[in-house]
Design a protein around this nucleic acid. Structure first.
Lengths: 248, 248
DNA sequence: AATAATAATTCATCTATATGAATTTGTAAA
DNA sequence: TTTACAAATTCATATAGATGAATTATTATT
């Protein structure tokens, strides 16, 4: 866990993700063991979550579980992103049509963060954990997202991003970035080869959405040769799926 | 906020509920002002949530917002409770048919906790905040829930509950409780008049679900005279709605 | 009823977080 | 370019949380 995260804040989400992973009630001891917390610390946290109503405690089994109030924390969101349940169906459809890794991601600070990752069915497939973050300014999905914004917004965003760069070599050149942006705008998608992970390629398209700063990005990725070979088919499938998505 | 809740844990949910209430991006200063937090404390919390991926920070507007990962924390739950989107439609349908306050609740420790509250359309209507908790052993919704469990489970649960009672007068007598339980089982619903709030009444029914300790309860409540007068119609509407719900 | 094992709670102490004032940085307007 | 204002960050200190050992309570078995 990042050193900059408040400890008990991180633990809140670890607990909620644990129940999402197991999908069954767990005792306090089980939670302790899975998450490797000291007993009394975990107890205080679990009791807080029960008092607040986000976890339930069954009085017969003395097991904890997520409450439906956790569902309500986030069930209003997809509609605001123009990401109805059709969005997940669309990602699934692209995955079935192509067999490659398909991702859905959103911008977060100077990163793109994965919301959904469906790993390819080929033995050799690109693989990411959900929640993974990739750089906003140097990846295909980031460029596809930025391309939905104005030149001015991009310049301002890059200026801020470069200010936070750890070293001069981490800084991105605006003119070089704009070449990729223009290319993406012209084609309607961003193709990225050998950008972050060697020998891999990805095609990324932004989904239509209510505002440019929240637009989601869908991408297809895999080994560079396979992606290049099937590029035309990938683009066709993605466009068709997004077109169907838009009219839902 | 309860004294027994870890402070920053409570704040996590305050922030997420704030975004649910406003449904638009907010600056750090706005979050501070709405929640009355010291500036640097709020900053540390917001940054933690961004790093963990549950909030997003837009690099152009420098505004925070909930991430779709919040949705994913809880979108798997309704299916496990047998509470598909039809459950909310059912609650809404009962509300439209009767015009009274309708609630959906779930057991949590020695309470029933409201998940959904739709306030009646009459000028005089029963009104609760979402997230409100009522006693498990002494309210109509609690008794309706307990009636789905075995006698042994009820006795055990009451023993634990009584052990935690602050005073002897807060303890519930098992034999008296079982009279209400048997009545509820015989009729298929619990009718409660003047139990918690004076001059109010409620009819409560448990929804079918995968296990008794997680069964949700739907209830119709309002001023005692109006509920008594329309009791037969309420029971009919609820049964019909639950029957339709079961086959969805 | 007694006993053993497990779970839950308590408490002293150490570590982490929260706070608010001061300082620095960023932005917008002149 | 300069200035004023707002936002963000820093830091010393106070408060809260985490920890782990010890103790108490609960449960299951004999």
């Amino acid at each position: 866990m990042s050193k900059d995260v408040v400890k008990s804040v991180g633990r809140v989400f670890s607990v909620l993700e644990l129940f999402k992973t197991h999908q069954k009630p767990l005792t306090a001891t089980e939670v302790c063991n899975y998450l490797d917390y000291p007993k009394s610390s975990a107890d205080a946290l679990l009791k807080s979550l029960v008092i607040l109503g986000y976890l339930t405690l069954d009085i017969n089994t003395t097991k904890y579980f997520s409450s439906l109030r956790v569902t309500k924390l986030g069930d209003w969101l997809p509609e605001l992103f123009g990401a109805s349940s059709y969005a997940l169906q669309m990602v699934d459809h692209i995955h079935k049509a192509l067999g490659e890794t398909v991702t859905l991601s959103m911008p977060n600070d100077i990163h793109m963060q994965f919301i959904t990752v469906i790993t390819g069915t080929f033995p050799i497939s690109l693989s990411f954990q959900q929640g993974t973050k990739l750089p906003l300014f140097t990846t295909g999905i980031g460029i596809a997202q930025l391309a939905t914004r104005t030149d001015e917004q991009i310049a301002k965003a890059l200026k801020r991003g470069n200010r936070r760069a750890a070293s001069a070599q981490d800084r991105v050149n605006l003119d070089e970035l704009m070449v990729d942006i223009e290319s993406t705008r012209a084609k309607g998608y961003c193709e990225a080869f050998n950008r972050l992970v060697p020998d891999t390629g990805a095609i990324a398209m932004a989904l239509p959405g209510p505002s440019s700063e929240s637009q989601l990005v869908v991408a297809v990725g895999g080994p560079i040769d396979r992606i290049k070979k099937t590029e035309d088919k990938i683009i066709q499938e993605m466009r068709q799926a997004i077109r169907s998505y838009r009219s839902s």
